[in-house]
Amino acid sequence: MPDPRDRGQTRRAKISAMREQEERARRRNKNLTISLTVIGVFAVVLAAVFVVNRVSGSESAEVAAGESRFVRADSHKLSVAADGKVTLVEFLDFECEACRAAFPIVEDLREQYAGKVTFVARYFPLPGHFNAERAARAVEAAAGQDKFDAMYQRMYQTQSQWGEKQVPADEVFRGFAKDLGLDLAAWDKAYNDPATLERIKKDVADGQALGVSGTPTFFLNGQKLEPQSVDDFKAAIDAALAS
């Protein structure tokens, strides 16, 4: 026979166990609520940042008469077609390996379609590449001395020496400028000029407006081209020439 005191204690123990369970459930709920609130606040802040960026973000400039988002008046042309019928635009990154792989193909095509196809190079340095933007500035600085072609080629020919290094390649690029016999003082000035960077960012903004997300991205007469082989390239160009 359990005596009444014992029974009272049993009840108390049960109540306290129940209370504890409730307390635990309450804490569990709070734990979840606070965590979800934190995530919610994070999402709201993120969305706000996105919206602000959208509104004040770098809009690609207005398209003036005689140019397009694909080819601006100041875009660098590697070769020019007399009739201007077919234009191949490449958004490129000097540190991107796929771009380097495409480089000899594009060089061959330039030779093969000399005078028939306009080849345009647009800067699209990707942020994941440490020296891509520097390389673009180096090429743009050389372009100021009419050596765009030479510096462009030099970048791809030497990419394996300076690419993927994660250390600033300024001196390497300066060496290229010297080798090409450029006016180094002028090159230095252009290389460090914020206007040079602005010029590159204009190309990037155009690329983004056109939906470029990786490099190389080719546009043939305004149509995005995704060639799997050299033959694909030629077939597309031939078709454009024939049309």
Binding site: R27, N31, L32, I34, S35, V38, I39, F42
Partner: peptide, 17 residues
Amino acid sequence: IGYHAVPLTLWFLAVIT
């Protein structure tokens, strides 16, 4: 321990940020 998921959430969000 009562709010175990909160620091963990903050930790993840910090890395994501």
